[in-house]
Amino acid sequence: MKEFFAYAVMALPDLLQGTVVTLQLTAGALVIGLAIGLPLSLLRVYGPKLIQPFCTAYLTVFRGTPLLVQLFVVYYGLPEIGLSFSRMAAAFITLGCNSGAYQCEYFRGAIQAVSRDQMKAARAIGMSRFQGIRHIILPQALRLVIPAWSNELIAMVKYTAIVFLIAVPDLMNKAKILSSQNFAPIQTYVLVALIYLVLVGFLSLVLHGIQRKLAVPGLDAGMDGR
């Protein structure tokens, strides 16, 4: 045990450096995912029939394949057709597009959970369809989506753990280097697991706090993601 603590003290600075990168990746992926997922969900619900197959194709590809395949296609495959990305950029793009597909489904679920009568009432006071979506449907959907979105945030922290396979200097990458330098894989990965545990625990607490703050009576229907 004493040995482990000594090792932990030695390894922590490096690991925390990697943790910062992990958090940056998470935040970046969520923002990109939001920028893709929210408009895509609106297209899914309100968009013309013609573009539905394209939306479906996007969702099927990103939800139907492992993140690892997506990462390798983007980082190793796309340069073949002239699209080269840096390690960091490839990680952001892959995680972002992947999160976009999941966020689209969460938003779609939330939008469809808002009763159709709300739109009717909005139209009855003279709002256009667009105004109805913007001022009546979306504000409610965004509240309903918070639990699912919180889950997505937590999931994304964990999903970033594979980008070390294209040598992005995240937490896992640092762990890999440390473990081979010190021949201490078990200690290293247990330490990594503890760091993820603390991260996820802390984020869950914060998200729960936010959920309680934003709650509107009668609008907290359970819209849990996976």
Binding site: I154, K158, Y159, A161, I162, M172, Y189, V192, A193, Y196, L197, V200, G201
Partner: peptide, 8 residues
């Protein structure tokens, strides 16, 4: 569930 599968 709090730890990435790859770490497990």
């Amino acid at each position: 569930r709090a730890v990435p599968v790859v770490v497990i």
